[in-house]
């Protein structure tokens, strides 16, 4: 049996680079204009899996993502970097899932891939910044969890040791396997795409993507079965519909307000001596300082 590692990765809008093009005239963000990227901490998670694969020849890295059809892009990105296989969990019925419904779906998909040794997730996704999905998947699978992983210090067949990054320190722990770990951004950066793997997996597609491309792909898949990215929907993972999407999500969004860069009455000063002196005098006189 191989040492199976399942990496959970999410495609997210690049909220870190809200440039001028993504701003609307009213000062709010046009979310549609943001690029869809591999969630940064999930790349760190993938790297941890790939490092283990370098150390153990029997390791196998599977990437799992739940999202819309275009999330197949991040599976390809993972294949280019050394993952062995990817699954796209996609279904309209998943739309509107909060972290609880998402972790329910992911836990069912992970279960279908049993037996496994490790599930590795990023600490948090930059769209929601919740950091909840990892621990919740662990709970649903009844696995021990180790959050904020910085590195694996020892890998054995039935146990691993992990260095964790806490707010004000580090901690080294051991956990029996199988276990779920989440990876912190202070862990090693992910390696770049590998040119050979890029050539090998460039044409990896999900069946729905192939159908859109209308080419005849049966021959291609017969010769190179590794080019097929599997897609799973509600029926494949045998999910209970009441636990999915909006109905399976206890949290509801009541209201969304766009942050507007509010203009405030402000006094503009130059760097000339008299401007600075006047300002400092104001501050001292009004007891803001001094």
């Amino acid at each position: 049996m191989s040492f199976r590692i399942i990496v959970l990765a999410k495609q997210v809008p690049d909220t870190r680079n809200v440039g001028k093009d993504a701003m609307k005239a009213d000062g709010t963000v046009n979310r549609g204009a943001l690029e869809a990227i591999f969630n940064p901490e999930d790349l760190h998670a993938l790297e941890q899996a790939l490092l283990i694969k370098e150390e153990r020849k029997d390791a196998e890295v599977i990437i799992l993502t739940m999202g819309p059809p275009r999330a197949a892009n991040i599976i390809r990105e993972a294949l280019y970097r050394g993952a062995d296989k990817g699954y796209l969990i996609t279904d309209r019925k998943f739309a509107g899932s909060d972290t609880l419904a998402t972790s329910y779906v992911l836990s069912l998909a992970v279960k279908k891939l049993a037996p496994f040794h490790l599930v590795i997730a990023g600490r948090q996704a930059i769209d929601g910044d919740t950091a909840q999905v990892g621990p919740q998947v662990a709970e649903k699978l009844d696995l021990p969890q180790v959050t904020y992983t910085e590195k694996f210090t020892e890998i054995k067949n039935k146990e691993v040791s992990i260095q964790r990054r806490l707010e004000r320190g580090v901690e080294t722990v051991s956990t029996p396997l199988p276990a779920l770990v989440t990876v912190h951004s202070s862990a090693a950066n992910c390696r770049p795409r590998n040119a050979k793997l890029l050539m090998k997996y460039k044409h990896a597609r999900t069946i729905s993507e192939l159908q859109e491309e209308t080419k005849d792909y049966t021959e291609m898949l017969n010769n190179k079965p590794y080019l097929q990215i599997d897609e799973w929907g509600v029926a494949d993972i045998e999910a209970g519909e009441e636990q999915l999407g909006l109905s399976g999500s206890p949290t509801k969004v009541k209201k969304i307000e766009n942050v507007v860069f509010a203009a405030k009455e402000s006094i503009v000063l130059s760097s000339e001596d008299n401007d600075i002196d006047r300002l400092m005098k104001d501050l001292i006189d009004s007891h803001v300082v001094g």
């Binding site: 405030k264 503009v268 760097s271 600075i276």
Partner: peptide, 27 residues
């Protein structure tokens, strides 16, 4: 600048020493 009560337009290397100087001289 839109959020600030005062916006000083210039380089910090230039401005901060001036602030320190005035404050030291006047308190």
């Amino acid at each position: 600048n839109e959020l600030a009560d005062y916006s000083i337009i210039g380089n910090i290397e230039d401005i901060i020493p001036k602030m320190i100087k005035f404050y030291k001289q006047n308190t």
